[in-house]
């Protein structure tokens, strides 16, 4: 099979202009995009930069965009793409700095962010010898979070990172969530305190893009929500959090569903001008993508009045 590739190129250094190179390669019928890249580097262009390691879809090192869709180049097969005719476009994943060609800066966008979350267990009982009995349902949750292969696709889909690269991001938060329900850890409270800081878990706008992008069905957004719940339960919360929750409740009570624009604004605080300015790019992008309606012009959903009554009942009960 013959296939034509158009590959993103960029020399190291902040000022170099990105470009593209095209290559035509002869490949076996079951070849993957990784096979093609290896062949190109070997036979046509030794300067082409890309990453890869396990070759079996386990390790997440070779994540790229193929024809605009995120993929592991080691498991993405060329044949169906070549069958469509035309050039196969290979690009680095979006939203993150590129060191060279298809080599993204994993240090900056993933490893250093993970490092900042105290991503290890502080064991309660480091030296015990007896086999502890732990409910496997708890362990299953840990296993789910740990099936993450650090592919970065949740970060790629994230709507906050493009406007605020300092946000810790869903991949690092997923990593941190792995300790949340583990009875063996004694640093959960400390970790939640780290994560409640600005750029941490409360900066997530739960647009659910991370969950849609995760190839492992880890649902990073849900992991972040769980982590916030746990923080709330433990009384680990800051002002912004409280505002966030109050706004959330008020929005649902008024219209029956969530006014995300209002939530973001009220969470920042109506008098916090610099915080509000920061939201503008995200909001503009979200509105452009049809992800968020204009704040406060939120239409009521059908049955909103009944939802309001439920909330009122619950509020009365709490009192």
């Amino acid at each position: 099979m013959q296939a034509k590739f158009s590959v993103y190129r960029k020399e190291p250094g902040a000022h170099s202009k990105p470009g593209r190179s095209t290559y035509t390669v002869e490949l076996a019928d079951d070849a993957t995009v990784m096979d093609a890249l290896l062949k190109i580097r070997d036979e046509q262009d030794p300067t082409l930069g890309f990453r890869g390691s396990c070759l079996h879809g386990y390790c997440g090192d070779c994540t790229v965009r193929v024809n605009g869709k995120a993929a592991f180049s080691c498991t993405a097969r060329v044949a169906p793409l070549a069958a469509k005719g035309g050039e196969i476009a290979v690009e680095p994943i979006r939203n993150m700095p590129v060191v060279k060609d298809l080599i993204s800066d994993w240090d900056a966008f993933l490893w250093e962010k993970i490092d900042s979350t105290k991503p290890w267990m502080e064991p309660k009982d480091a030296d015990g010898a007896a086999e502890p009995q732990i409910d496997d349902k708890l362990m299953a949750r840990v296993r789910q979070a740990m099936s993450c292969n650090y592919c970065g696709l949740c970060d790629e889909g994230c709507t906050v990172l493009p406007v605020d690269f300092k946000f810790v991001g869903p991949a690092a938060l997923t990593k941190a969530s792995r300790f949340l329900f583990d009875p063996r850890d004694q640093a959960t409270a400390e970790r939640l305190r780290i994560l409640e800081r600005p750029k941490g878990m409360w900066d997530c706008v739960h647009c659910f893009e991370a969950s849609e992008h995760c190839p492992r069905e880890i649902a990073p957004t849900e992991r972040i929500v769980e982590m916030r719940d746990e923080a709330f339960k433990r009384g680990i919360t800051n002002e912004k959090v409280a505002r966030h929750h109050l706004s959330f409740a008020a929005s649902v009570k008024r219209s029956g569903w969530l006014d995300e624009g209002r939530l973001a604004i009220e969470s920042e605080g109506l008098t916090n001008v610099s915080g509000l300015m920061k939201l503008l790019p995200t909001a503009a992008k979200a509105i452009a993508r049809g992800k968020a309606p204009i704040p406060y012009l939120h239409p009521k959903r059908p049955g909103a009045d009944r939802i309001a009554r439920i909330i009122e009942k619950a509020e009365a009960k709490e009192k």
Partner: peptide, 13 residues
Amino acid sequence: ERMGTPFNRGADG
């Protein structure tokens, strides 16, 4: 295990 490996467990934990 002590350092946090989530080994699969049976019904008895």
